Simulated scan of single mutants.
Amino acid sequence: MRVMVLVKADADSEASVMPEEQLLTEMGKYNEELVKAGIMLAGDGLHPSSKGVRVRFSGKERSVIDGPFAETKELVAGYWLWQVRSMDEAVEWVKRCPNPMLGESEIEIRPVFEADDFGEAYTPEARERDERLRAQTSQRQ
């Protein structure tokens, strides 16, 4: 199963406080463990929401909202995409993670939808299209 592992933002990450060398070293070692175990598919830190935008949809209308965004605890500061056998395995890996923030922090784990999750609505044509797009995307990496 694939899971998205979301590192929640805090006041420091939203203020562009960069991690110290020790944390970068610890996270680098942790990421090496994830790669060696065949778990990590992707991962990066994100700039604060002040550098981001949101696009709000209302019917056919679209509006752009510039950051920063108010609810820091609901924002994401970084992510990993992992391939694991179970949610329990993902939890065990997160428990081994260095604390990604200077103070208290939170990491959220959410399963990624797989093709079979969509049932009959996911037609053979849609499945073929998505497989083609994934192949094209992986070629560009």
Rank of each mutant, 00 (worst) to 15 (best):
M1P: 15
V3R: 02
V5C: 08
L6V: 04
K8Q: 07
K8V: 06
D10F: 10
D10E: 14
A11Y: 14
S13L: 07
S13F: 12
E14I: 05
E14L: 12
E14N: 12
A15F: 07
M18L: 14
P19K: 07
E20D: 15
L23H: 01
L23A: 00
G28S: 01
G28M: 03
G28K: 01
Y30T: 00
Y30E: 04
E32S: 15
K36I: 00
G38C: 12
I39N: 03
I39Q: 07
M40F: 03
L41Y: 02
D44R: 09
D44I: 01
L46K: 04
H47P: 00
P48S: 14
V53F: 08
V53S: 11
F57P: 00
G59S: 09
K60W: 09
V64Y: 11
E71T: 11
K73R: 09
E74F: 11
V76W: 06
A77G: 15
A77N: 11
Y79G: 05
W80D: 05
W80C: 12
Q83T: 13
V84Q: 01
S86M: 05
S86V: 03
S86T: 07
M87Q: 06
E89A: 04
A90I: 07
V91K: 02
K95A: 13
P100L: 05
S105H: 10
I107F: 13
R110L: 05
P111C: 10
F113E: 03
F113I: 06
E114D: 05
E114Y: 01
D116Y: 03
D117R: 06
E120K: 13
A121F: 05
T123K: 07
E125Q: 14
E131L: 15
R132E: 06
L133C: 04
L133I: 13
R134M: 06
T137A: 11
S138I: 06
S138D: 08
Q139L: 11
R140L: 15
